[in-house]
Nucleic acid binder design. Structure first.
Lengths: 183, 183
DNA sequence: ATGATATGTTGACGCAGACAACATAACGCT
DNA sequence: AGCGTTATGTTGTCTGCGTCAACATATCAT
């Protein structure tokens, strides 16, 4: 708590990262919809307007959180051998559901935050490379991404009834093949 | 406008459906996040508290909108021969992006609104039946749903670069096969 | 040292969700 | 027809939030 406080109380000294860290917790606890700048400021021990020195508005804070998320996701994927990449994707979504929803929930206008698109592309690249040897890699990659992405969403929403989640994930992802030619 | 007004002005007479209709427009125009009960009331020509006679709170109104959405989606799917069901799913998402996001955006706690799960199950059934003859229909259906669902989401977020959208949709959906046995 | 700049605070405004109290219309019963 | 009950709409109020403006204090370059 209150990591690296300066001796004087007036300036926090490390506010931006502290805000992002606290916001990350609040995000997973209550979801993006009820993440309030004022509540965040309270929780960080600063005045209700301090966050505005580091983020122009609430949306920009959420965008920063989402960008963090894309970076995390990219790292997770790149560390995986192609076969298990899909499972890693789903695992990320299940471990950080609110972060995942923020990244893909449409709350943030991607056009307004180029960093977001860049970060997302970065994560996507990990998937695309795994399909490099197929005849139409961009199609297979798009389909694979769609599959794991939709599966993650539907799992989060509780739309599937299953006893053993890990097993179910492997079975569903395993049932899909990526053909050479489109119908 | 002001359809079926009673002669007297005090009671609207048809408020609940009118609210849902107006809310549907506002939803597609500005997204669920900025859909305000007060704004809705203004637009419907009633006082700021009138909606509370028909919905216990904002969340309940959104849940009703989402339930409508699931019903619409179900109808769309049921009207399609299995092969084109996937395209119909994507088409729905693209035509009513905000409705789609509301339905699957995680804003609404499904546990709190059983009607939502029921309505969603109804739409899902259409997909499940299309895979009835496969050896593990529930797996294939789950995978197919995941594919079209994730694809819809990613298209909405603008994560794919493509010139001809319809063609791209057919190509991506066509590249996937559902195997008999899981790996 | 000093002036510019970065960072944090206080105060204010408008808007939204939600509750309570009140007003009016519709409906059932006799 | 008359009357009490209930459904539906309104006014008033409270609290919290996002955001802007003005002010305070610390940091840094010269």
């Amino acid at each position: 708590m209150t990591t690296l406080r300066r001796k004087t109380a007036y300036h926090h000294g490390n506010l931006r990262p502290a805000l992002l860290r606290t916001a990350g917790k609040l995000l997973e606890d209550q979801g993006a919809a009820s993440l309030a700048l004022r509540g965040l400021a309270r929780r960080a021990g600063v005045s209700h307007n301090a966050p505005y020195r580091h983020f122009p508005n609430r949306e920009a804070l959420l965008a920063a959180l989402a960008a963090e998320g894309f970076a995390m996701l990219g790292e997770r994927l790149r560390g995986q051998p192609g076969r298990e990449m899909g499972e890693a994707y789903v695992r990320f979504a299940l471990e950080q559901p609110q972060r995942f929803r923020l990244m893909f929930g449409g709350l943030l206008p991607m056009a307004k935050y180029p960093q977001l698109r860049t970060a997302a592309q970065g994560a996507y690249q990990a998937l695309v490379e795994a399909f490099k040897d197929l005849p139409r890699p961009e199609l297979a990659a798009a389909a694979a991404w769609s599959l794991v992405h939709g599966f993650s969403h539907l799992l989060l929403d509780g739309h599937f009834a299953h006893s053993d989640r890990e097993h179910f994930v492997r079975e569903v992802l395993g049932v899909v093949r990526f053909a050479q030619r489109a119908a």
